[in-house]
Nucleic acid binder design. Structure first.
Length: 432
DNA sequence: TGGGGTCCT
DNA sequence: AGGACCC
């Protein structure tokens, strides 16, 4: 199991993640939030995606719609904030940069999580975990926990344990815990707590009498592979201490890019849809150019609300592009082929485009957004058009479109300042 | 009452 | 293409 790995000083995996990241990021710049129940809302201020410990203590479930929370917010002293991705992205970069100093082998797994390859005696590993935790808290201002184990799956489990059991003080080295205690934990926890197992798989496992993590760790990997998949088999092996999920290189370029939003107010006209698709075409172009990529295929889609199960409609078109491109005009034109499938009067609650079959831009400069002056002119017109109609800030690349704007822009009524990335929104510090 | 992704079958 | 998962 994991013991030989430790004895042979095989590299282990440290999993580091920020406790309730969005809420912690907000707090690190607004100390008045300390000790208060805080929730951060999803796009469109739809539902609570992050809760501070105080908000959890109020019994607010993850994913609770804001419209249900709002009436009681005052009574609870609940603070709700719109997602401020610029702030979180910046805090994330600082955390990752700092972690990179403790291991050359860093995999940034998500905005608030990283895996690190680490080596050392159990004492050294525990010390390393504590050092990282303290450093991130002091230098970036957000709390993290650390789990260290032979595999990614166990490292994540150890991290979760560290978060839930104060005795660990935020750092759990799996192999340093008494086997009886580990078994007791795994016996108490449902398989749904494991990385890679969610509701569907949990149901199927339960049918086989596999309920706890301990049950799963004792299952026969081959049986699991036959009845489920190689993915689930890897999970079983990882629980047994055999690394099956490798550290990954930094991924350059995505397989696909999606631009999609639900609307604050539904779109009911082809003209409205045309504008939305134009914006997506723009955004896709900018992102492709930024990554030095071109797309061969574009899919455009729209859909009615699934909370309104009558008169549903989900039109979509898939457009092979004549040649790989990141050109805003060509992408927008392709996206507009959805328009004939749009029926006037139908209430579309969302729309989007997806570009796939991506490949690196050839010998053209990756950042040459507008190749020929003719097209540049037309793009300018497109931007001007929307801006004239809906006002400045309604459209644009990057973050230009988030304030105000037409009905279909994102609703972010409770946005905190972009403290770290915009000069006019820097926090003020008064020296006494 | 989110929006982006990936991998496997 | 669709179904599962992740954050």
């Amino acid at each position: 199991m994991s013991k030989p790995a430790t004895m042979r000083r095989m590299p282990l995996i440290a999993h580091v993640d920020v406790n309730c990241f969005y809420a912690s990021a907000e707090r690190s710049f607004d100390p008045s939030l300390e000790g208060k129940p805080v929730v951060v809302l999803s796009n469109n201020d739809g539902c609570a995606v992050t809760r501070s410990p105080e908000a959890k203590a109020l019994g607010i479930p993850l994913g609770e719609p804001w419209f249900k929370l709002a009436p009681r917010a005052k009574e609870w002293g609940l603070v709700a904030l719109s997602s401020n991705y610029e702030l979180y992205g910046d805090i994330s970069a600082r955390v990752m940069e700092l972690l990179g100093r403790y291991s050359a082998w860093l995999e940034v797994y998500s905005i608030d999580e990283a895996f690190l390859g680490v080596k050392g005696t159990p004492d050294e590993l525990l010390a390393l975990g504590r050092t990282m935790k303290t450093a991130v808290r002091r230098n970036v201002g957000v709390p993290v926990c650390v789990g260290i184990a032979a595999t990614k799956t166990l490292a994540k489990l150890a991290n979760k344990w560290a978060k839930n059991n104060p005795a660990f003080d935020g750092v759990c080295h799996w192999d340093s815990v008494a086997p009886a205690d580990r078994e007791s934990l795994m016996g108490r926890l449902s398989v749904i707590e494991i990385w890679g197992v969610a509701t569907r798989l949990t149901k199927r496992l339960n049918v086989l009498g596999i309920h706890s993590i301990l049950d799963l760790s004792r299952a026969d990997p081959v049986m699991i592979r036959d009845r489920f998949s190689v993915v689930m088999m890897r999970t079983v092996l990882e629980l047994q201490g055999t690394p099956c999920i490798p550290m990954e290189e930094e991924r350059i370029g995505r397989d696909q890019l999606i631009f999609s939003r639900s609307f604050a107010t539904s779109i009911t006209t082809a003209a409205g849809m045309r504008q939305v698709l134009s914006v997506y075409g723009q955004q896709a172009s900018a992102r492709l150019a930024k990554h030095g990529l071109q797309a061969k295929v574009l899919t455009a889609f729209a859909g009615t609300s699934h909370f309104n199960p009558k008169d549903t409609s989900y039109p979509s078109v898939c457009v092979p592009l004549p040649m790989p491109t990141a050109d805003p005009v060509l992408l927008t034109r392709a996206a507009h082929t959805l328009l004939p499938h749009i029926s006037e009067g139908v209430r579309y609650a969302r729309a989007g485009i997806m570009v796939t079959d991506l490949r690196p831009t050839g010998n053209q400069a990756p950042l040459a957004l507008f190749e020929n002056p003719h097209e540049e002119r037309r793009v300018g017109t497109l931007l001007d058009d929307v801006t004239r109609r809906y006002g400045r800030g309604s459209i644009g690349l990057g973050h230009a479109g988030i304030r105000g704007g037409p009905d279909w822009t994102m609703k972010r009524d409770m946005l905190s300042p972009r403290y770290t990335t915009h000069w006019d929104e820097l926090p003020l510090v008064k020296a006494a």
